[in-house]
């Protein structure tokens, strides 16, 4: 029941994010979708992931997108919001949804019995991150540093062009 509410919230947010004309409205609807997903994660017992979802997606990604929207404002005036080949794209998207739904419905995994709620305390997550997944964690750290430097270099105004 609760899951249904969160799922509807998420889908409504996602649909609104992709169909609204005003870009800022789109981003705000996107945050609704992110929040709905975070609620789904919390309901599935993944507390850490749900809260990290809010912290990273709403607190960082959405705000980043909002800044980008305000720095590149020309879209509100554009008469056509969708690309010319939208019919073909729509067919592709619908076909993919059909295949996915069919696969989900016919897979053996969906007929498994429901297991009891697995334990995932912060202690376990921390241990897993520091022991088994230590190398991926280091790589993610490196990736984020590289992305930070790269983003700053790309977005920085080139000094020579200015003069």
């Amino acid at each position: 029941m609760l899951f249904l509410i969160f799922a509807m919230l998420t889908v409504a947010g996602a649909v609104a994010a992709m169909s609204l004309r005003n870009l800022v409205h789109s981003v705000l609807a996107l945050t609704v979708a992110f929040a709905g997903l975070a609620a789904v994660y919390l309901q599935l017992g993944a507390q850490f992931v749900g809260l990290a979802q809010i912290l990273v997606y709403i607190g960082a990604v959405a705000i980043l997108i909002v800044f980008a929207v305000l720095l590149t404002r020309d879209s509100e005036a554009s008469p056509l919001a969708i690309v010319g080949s939208w019919k073909g794209s729509g067919v592709v998207a619908l076909a993919i949804f059909g295949i996915l739904a069919w696969a989900v419905d016919h897979s053996a995994a969906s007929r498994q019995s429901v297991l009891p709620q697995p334990e995932a305390t912060m202690q376990q997550i921390g241990n897993a991150l520091m022991l088994r997944f230590a190398l991926p964690l280091e790589i993610i750290g490196l990736l984020l540093t590289v992305a930070l430097i790269g983003a700053v270099t790309i977005a920085m105004r080139e000094k020579k062009e200015m003069r």
Binding site: M18, L23, S75, A81, I82, V83, W86, G90, A93
Partner: peptide
């Protein structure tokens, strides 16, 4: 996917 394929911005 639909949004990424269809929208202009």
């Amino acid at each position: 996917l639909a949004g990424a394929l269809m929208r202009r911005n």
